[in-house]
């Protein structure tokens, strides 16, 4: 009972906040609504007995990604620039894609028979660590290598000079 109540509460907040993310006319407000959605996801993880995932979700997404997005919004424009034309240019097509995707996912969920699925015992953090760093060590390391490559790539892209630089001394 408590679980259901908590779930529907979190779900309601998340859906409203997610709607406001796309409808908000103001970039900073949209990002803050996104932070609420991500916090809601963390709350869902916590409700499903996955506290580690919940903590990581908050730490990386709310603490890291949202903060970086805010920083991005800040350095790209003046404060008035934060009120951007983020309204979709073609609403009909956007709606079609959204409804189609919803139907696809919803259909898949409804068609799956969950009646004989036994809820697995939620793994403790120690078990999670063991499977991540013992059983699936190779995959884990490959993933981290991929992320490293992405970081290096981002730095290279950011540092690439304009191919036709103005020949009036060094920049800055």
């Amino acid at each position: 009972m408590t679980f259901r109540l908590a779930f529907w509460l979190v779900a309601l907040v998340m859906v409203v906040a997610a709607y406001l993310v796309v409808r908000s006319q103001n970039l900073v407000r949209a990002v803050l609504w996104l932070a609420l959605v991500l916090l809601g996801t963390a709350a869902l993880y916590a409700l499903l007995d996955a506290p580690f995932l919940a903590g990581v979700q908050v730490l990386t997404y709310v603490g890291g990604v949202v903060t970086l997005m805010i920083f991005g919004v800040m350095v790209t424009g003046r404060q008035e620039g934060a009120v951007a034309e983020i309204d979709s240019a073609d609403r009909i097509r956007g709606l079609l894609v959204a409804v189609g995707f919803f139907a696809l996912v919803g259909g898949a969920i409804l068609k799956t028979d969950f009646s004989n699925v036994i809820a697995p015992r939620p793994p403790t953090t120690a078990e999670l660590a063991r499977s991540l760093l013992d059983d699936y060590l190779l995959a884990f390391e490959v993933t981290s290598l991929l992320l490293l490559a992405a970081v290096v790539g981002a730095v290279v892209l950011a540092r690439r000079r304009d191919p036709t630089p103005e020949t009036e001394g060094s920049p800055r």
Partner: peptide, 27 residues
């Protein structure tokens, strides 16, 4: 909590959001 340290760090990381929001909302 089983993940106490993680929880402390996560909440600490959220702390910046209200501070930034205050700065932005003040105009």
């Amino acid at each position: 909590l089983d993940v106490g340290v993680l929880y402390v760090l996560a909440i600490g990381a959220v702390t910046v959001l209200p501070v930034f929001t205050a700065g932005w909302a003040s105009n």
